[in-house]
């Protein structure tokens, strides 16, 4: 079976278990799944666990392979990870950083053309020769996405990809993520903004204290009951004229 399944996954930071034996129903190619939940719910930790960046126990099955059992090189051929931020201080241009993302493991042939193509596709081709350190926060996030996409991964993991983006760039990035998913990839993204998640996600998984609280379509998951229980807010969920979900916060729950 294609798609991503997670069985009994435990992810730890040092000795502290952040994600506790989590199961996630299959996420299918072509779908955007969003990990939502309050601060410290374990969203980014889960994402990094799936990406193999933190020590895990349990199984992360993609297609018919257990990603957790692969070498870092093999794993990198399957998945792309976009971090929340890129570190500063590297004397590299945007294009060089994306070429390095592709050449660091596996074949380097044609990496320059592949890197340039990804930058063009994301609409940041004009930044190709700019030094990384001169970019704005939003531009850096777009470059992070380019680095994740340049190896053409079948599984794309995005850690708060829109946190530094203005509204237009949020739409641009998520439209691109939608296209990337439609090409048959599995996309799993951590998003803070539930309205954004409800608009773009096919499935939402809500994490609460390291466990899966609820999973389903936005309409199934984003409910006043969930908002009260997980976020501790009193809220209404309305539909606008175009049928989209709107979350209106009235106050904290007492």
């Amino acid at each position: 079976m294609k798609g991503l399944r997670i069985e009994g996954l435990i992810v730890s930071y040092g000795r502290r278990r952040v994600v506790e034996g989590l199961d996630l129903p299959p996420l299918m190619p072509g779908e955007i799944a969003v990990l939502a939940g309050p601060n410290a719910a374990g969203k980014s930790t889960l994402l990094k666990g799936i990406a193999g960046l933190l020590p895990t126990r349990g199984r992360v099955i993609f297609g018919d392979r257990d990603l957790a059992a692969l070498s870092s090189g093999d794993r990198a051929q399957t998945l792309g990870f976009m971090p929340q931020t890129l570190p500063s201080g590297a004397a590299l241009s945007v294009l060089e950083s994306v070429i390095a993302a592709r050449s660091a493991s596996g074949e380097g042939a044609g990496a320059d053309h592949a890197a340039m193509a990804v930058l063009e596709r994301l609409g940041i081709g004009a930044l190709a020769l700019e030094p990384l350190d001169r970019l704005s926060g939003g531009q850096r996030q777009m470059v992070g996405l380019a680095q994740a996409l340049v190896r053409d991964p079948a599984l794309l993991l995005l850690d708060e990809p829109t946190s530094a983006l203005d509204m237009a760039r949020q739409v641009r990035l998520l439209s691109e993520v939608r296209r990337v998913a439609a090409e048959g990839r599995v996309v799993l993204a951590v998003l803070h903004d539930l309205a954004l998640a409800a608009q773009w996600a096919d499935r939402i998984a809500v994490l609460h204290k390291g466990r899966l609280h609820s999973f389903g379509t936005p309409a199934e998951v984003v409910t006043p009951a969930m908002l009260a229980e997980v976020y501790g807010v009193e809220a209404r969920v309305e539909r606008c004229s175009r049928g989209r979900l709107m979350v209106l916060i009235d106050g904290e729950t007492v």
């Binding site: 870092s72 794993r75 990198a76 998945l79 971090p83 890129l86």
Partner: peptide
């Protein structure tokens, strides 16, 4: 140079 986490995710 792009960060340890990034480098690891590149394989």
């Amino acid at each position: 140079r792009l960060g340890e986490e990034q480098a690891r995710s590149f394989g």
